[in-house]
Computed example of a mutant assay.
Amino acid sequence: MTGRARRDAGLGVLGVLLAFGVCEAVSRAGIVRREYLPPASDVLARSVELAGDPVFLDGVGATLRAWVLGLALACAIAVPAGLLLGSVPIVDAAVRAIVEFLRPLPSVALIPLVSLLLGSGTETEVALVTYASVWPILFNTMYGLGESEPLAKDTLRAFGFGRAAVLLRVELVGAAPFIAAGIRISAAVALVVAVATELLSGFGEGLGIFIAQAQQATDGNLDVLAGVVWAGVLGLLINGVLVRCERRLFPWTPERRAVRA
């Protein structure tokens, strides 16, 4: 770990400890009633306790399964579609209006429609996660194609390589870091949508269902906040793994060189 990385990690830990201390002090001092905001130490203890609850862990596993399936489907759809739209301007022009119409639609607003079509089960959750996750990957793929090296493309064409060879050998390789960044963004979006879908729909099992049920219980705020802590930890771990993978796979990018400096 470089000096800059150690400094950033230290500042991150300091920020977490500061937030923990503020929440603990606010609750202990009675500024906010404990029924509404339990002490941070109690929330942390409950979060650790849930790690030994098999039923809770099964719910977390269900959320992660929907997350994995939705993100994988989004990659399988968005990368080829981004390559097509980014390399064939006439196709991009033909579907641009449809894409711009669909992109702003919040996935959770589609819960009633998708539930009607697919039923109240994992299929609905996976479909909504896929829908929400497609857009960052799609647009990052298209943007990455536009940033590919013109000289490398001209060189291949000069040696007689066709359009498909240029796309696979130069443009796709150049777009790969952008695609990876899109996947990392979509991974966070997918987790948010998976939990939100469970929370708002009220069906199935998962972390969102645990939070929704805790909301209905008397003095359930402790479990609600513990569930939120788990969601945040999962997001942090997923992002950390993907960032590490990006650094290993694409060490030549300017961002990665700056981190190493």
Results as ranks from 00 to 15, higher is better:
Arg7Cys: 10
Arg7His: 13
Asp8Asn: 09
Asp8Gly: 05
Ser27Ala: 14
Arg28Ile: 09
Ala29Ser: 15
Pro38Trp: 03
Ser41His: 12
Asp42Ser: 11
Leu44Gln: 00
Leu44Pro: 03
Glu49Phe: 10
Ala51Ile: 03
Val55Trp: 08
Gly59Val: 06
Val60Glu: 04
Leu71Lys: 02
Ala72Arg: 00
Leu73Trp: 09
Ala74Cys: 03
Cys75Phe: 01
Cys75Met: 13
Ala78Met: 01
Ala81Glu: 10
Leu83Trp: 03
Leu85Glu: 10
Ser87Leu: 11
Ala93Ile: 11
Leu105Trp: 06
Pro106Trp: 09
Pro106Tyr: 12
Ser107Asp: 13
Val108Met: 10
Pro112Thr: 08
Pro112Trp: 09
Leu113Val: 15
Leu113Ser: 05
Ser115Trp: 02
Ser120His: 06
Glu123Asp: 09
Thr124His: 04
Ile137His: 01
Ile137Val: 12
Leu138Ile: 05
Thr141Trp: 01
Thr141Cys: 00
Met142Ala: 12
Glu147His: 07
Glu147Ser: 09
Ser148His: 00
Lys153Gln: 15
Thr155Cys: 12
Arg157Ser: 15
Ala164Lys: 02
Glu171Ala: 12
Gly174Glu: 11
Ala175Asn: 08
Pro177Cys: 10
Ile183Met: 07
Ala187Pro: 10
Ala188Val: 15
Val189Ser: 11
Val189Glu: 14
Val189Cys: 12
Ala190Ser: 11
Val193Asp: 06
Glu198Asp: 10
Leu199Arg: 07
Phe203Ser: 07
Leu207Glu: 02
Gly208Asn: 07
Gly208Glu: 09
Phe210Ser: 10
Ile211Tyr: 00
Gln213Ile: 01
Gln216Gly: 13
Gln216Trp: 02
Ala217Leu: 10
Thr218Glu: 11
Asp219Glu: 06
Gly220Glu: 02
Asn221Asp: 09
Asn221Cys: 00
Asp223Thr: 00
Val224Ala: 03
Leu225Phe: 13
Leu225Met: 15
Ala226Gly: 10
Trp230Ser: 08
Ala231Thr: 14
Leu237Ile: 13
Asn239Phe: 04
Asn239Leu: 08
Asn239Thr: 10
Leu242Arg: 05
Glu246Met: 11
Phe250Asp: 03
Pro251Tyr: 14
Trp252Glu: 15
Pro254Met: 00
Pro254His: 03
Ala258Leu: 14
